[in-house]
């Protein structure tokens, strides 16, 4: 239990609370931490498309990559010197779906995620990651306020 903990960060304050909580949990259980952030790519153009599109795509994705790296960078600043073994992952796509994929890939046993506190209906309508994870995940989910 709590040997491999997945924590989702997006640079918001709530996600840092989740990160700190995950750090404390990992210290207790001597577990491994996987920090993931997922950015939605604006341009959904496949690699096979015209060369002009490719250029546009990299440009658009560059912005997304920058945002993602910024979130991971600030997480790294928190984690530096904590002595926990950490992996950083940057994914593209819907955070909830990517989190589920990462869980399978790394065989995580717990997910820690921050919450915006929207409530059920608002949560569904505004694409809440925590609401989705609570519904769909097959492993325990810890929701931090």
């Amino acid at each position: 239990m709590l040997k491999k903990v997945l924590v989702l960060v997006d640079g918001a304050e709530n996600s840092f609370r989740a990160l700190n909580y995950a750090i404390e949990l990992c210290k207790l259980s001597a577990g491994e931490l996987i920090v993931m952030t997922s950015v939605k790519t604006e341009m959904k153009v496949t690699a096979e498309a015209a060369p002009l599109d490719q250029e546009l795509r990299t440009q658009a994705n560059n912005e997304a990559v920058k945002t993602g790296n910024k979130a991971l960078g600030s997480a790294k600043a928190v984690l530096d010197g904590s002595g926990i073994s950490v992996q950083y992952i940057l994914e593209f796509g819907s955070p909830a779906a990517m989190a589920m994929k990462t869980v399978e890939k790394f065989e995580c046993d717990t997910i820690v995620v921050g919450s915006r506190g929207l409530g059920t209906i608002k949560g569904i309508l505004s694409d809440s990651v925590s609401t989705k994870l609570v519904q769909d995940a097959h492993i325990p989910v810890i929701v931090i306020k």
Binding site: Y21, S115, G117, L118, G119, T120, I121, G123, I124, S130, T131, K132, V134, Q135, A137, H138, I139, P140, V141, I142, V143, I144, K145
Partner: peptide, 28 residues
């Protein structure tokens, strides 16, 4: 329950998650 049926029927865990004063751990 699924996403929509939980919202309509009112899932206890969903309500607790949205109004709890502390972290909530949902076990599956």
């Amino acid at each position: 329950l699924g996403l929509m049926s939980a919202a309509l029927l009112g899932s206890v865990s969903g309500k607790v998650v949205s109004s709890a004063p502390c972290p909530v751990i949902i076990v599956r």
